[in-house]
Simulated scan of single mutants.
Amino acid sequence: MTDHLDARAVRMVDVAKFAGVSQTTASRALSGFKSVSPATRAAVEEAAQTLGYEINLAARSLASRGSQSIGFVVAEPSAHLWGGTYFPRLLQGITEATEGANQQLAIFMPQPNISHQRLRRYLAQGHVDGLLLITSTRQDPLLVDLMRRGMPVVVGGRPIGVAGASFVDVDNSHGAAMATSHLFERGYCNPAHIAGPTDTAAGEDRLSGYCTAMTSRGRTPVFREATDFSFQQGAEVALAIMREHPETDAIFAAGDSMAMGALTALRTIGRDVPGDVGLIGFDSSEPAAQAIPPLSSIYQPVEQLGSEMVRLILARVKDPAQPAQQRILGTRLVARDSSSGPVVRR
């Protein structure tokens, strides 16, 4: 077994000596030059991996004049992606933007709890010039590793626990405060919140916005955290809230799928929406608009979020040394029948 050198001490000359080639050849092999034979390239890459040499991905892409390809890594369970309208809308925005910029889009969907080592090896070969990343993992090790290696990366949504990353997100906190304020303005007195998982930026920020709106009115926040943003969790948490806080006369759910689940659950216990309980979600999805009654919601410009991610990543590919950029997009209220006001009982 070969002992690894300290990565900070490993130089290109060490890699070249280990692989039995010149330093120039080693540099060209790791920079993706096509003049290097496959056998030599494989030997140099194996030497770099054995010694722990850190390849600067940004420099490699620049040296090879780019691949004209952008990677899109979705580090989320597939059930989360296709269970709602968010991901298809995001993908539409990304696809239209990459096509407009004459870029190829390569999509990677590594399964959770499986090593990302194979993906890292693929990316290290310079097949893409930059990455768009969707992840809800706190301190995502893939994001940390790619930033450390110099790969241009833009994250969709505020990354949790990783400083200095470029990202595009919507103003989740303001949107949540707007939803909660809307319920008060419509005459509801005791709005509760079905919170998304607080280990996600969306869950954390929407809970913060709800709490701000409540405390600014001198009210005590009433919320219960769901394990995900699903219909099933919305139904289960809504029932728990109504059981533990029967005075609740309105619910703000952190996502439309959750709100749809809450609507179904409220019907099972004989609560009318909007007469007994007002209801509002977050996403303004098509299913929410078609519900009976149509669900009020907070609109977020998901397609614009995707296109803005592409704009930022292309700028970072062009100039990897530019400082990290963060873009926060606005949200707006879409009021429908589900929050039209309580029925006054006489």
Rank of each mutant, 00 (worst) to 15 (best):
317 V>E: 01
337 D>T: 10
249 D>I: 06
32 G>W: 04
237 V>E: 01
265 A>S: 05
41 R>E: 10
80 H>F: 15
321 A>V: 08
324 A>F: 02
125 Q>A: 13
284 S>N: 14
198 T>D: 14
157 G>V: 06
211 C>P: 12
318 K>V: 13
79 A>G: 06
76 E>G: 02
156 G>C: 15
261 G>F: 01
256 D>N: 01
227 T>D: 13
208 S>V: 11
134 I>N: 09
259 A>G: 05
156 G>Q: 15
298 I>S: 12
261 G>M: 01
40 T>F: 00
56 N>R: 05
323 P>T: 01
187 G>Q: 03
109 M>P: 09
303 E>A: 03
61 S>A: 14
142 L>R: 10
256 D>G: 02
172 N>K: 04
82 W>G: 08
34 K>I: 09
178 M>T: 12
279 L>T: 03
178 M>E: 15
327 R>V: 12
48 A>D: 00
110 P>N: 04
104 Q>R: 14
73 V>G: 04
66 G>H: 01
142 L>P: 12
128 V>M: 03
60 R>E: 00
320 P>W: 08
232 Q>H: 09
315 A>W: 07
103 Q>I: 06
280 I>Q: 05
24 T>P: 06
114 I>S: 08
95 T>A: 13
188 Y>Q: 07
19 A>N: 02
312 L>A: 08
221 P>S: 05
134 I>H: 12
9 A>G: 06
122 Y>P: 06
191 P>W: 04
250 A>K: 13
137 T>P: 11
140 D>I: 03
214 M>L: 07
328 I>R: 05
120 R>L: 15
312 L>R: 11
283 D>N: 08
179 A>H: 11
236 E>S: 12
204 E>A: 11
182 H>C: 13
249 D>R: 13
138 R>Y: 10
79 A>W: 09
81 L>C: 05
285 S>N: 00
157 G>A: 00
107 I>D: 14
66 G>F: 01
137 T>Y: 13
284 S>T: 10
107 I>K: 11
86 Y>D: 00
106 A>C: 14
150 G>Y: 03
237 V>D: 00
316 R>N: 04
253 A>W: 01
233 Q>H: 06
134 I>A: 11
208 S>K: 13
66 G>I: 01
270 G>Q: 01
106 A>Q: 15
292 I>K: 07
276 D>V: 04
68 Q>P: 05
116 H>T: 09
203 G>H: 02
17 K>M: 05
38 P>V: 05
232 Q>F: 04
190 N>Q: 12
331 T>V: 07
3 D>K: 11
299 Y>S: 12
75 A>L: 08
220 T>S: 08
121 R>A: 15
337 D>P: 09
45 E>C: 02
142 L>F: 00
204 E>M: 11
185 E>Q: 15
84 G>V: 03
311 R>D: 12
202 A>I: 05
254 A>Q: 02
27 S>V: 00
135 T>M: 04
39 A>G: 13
243 R>N: 15
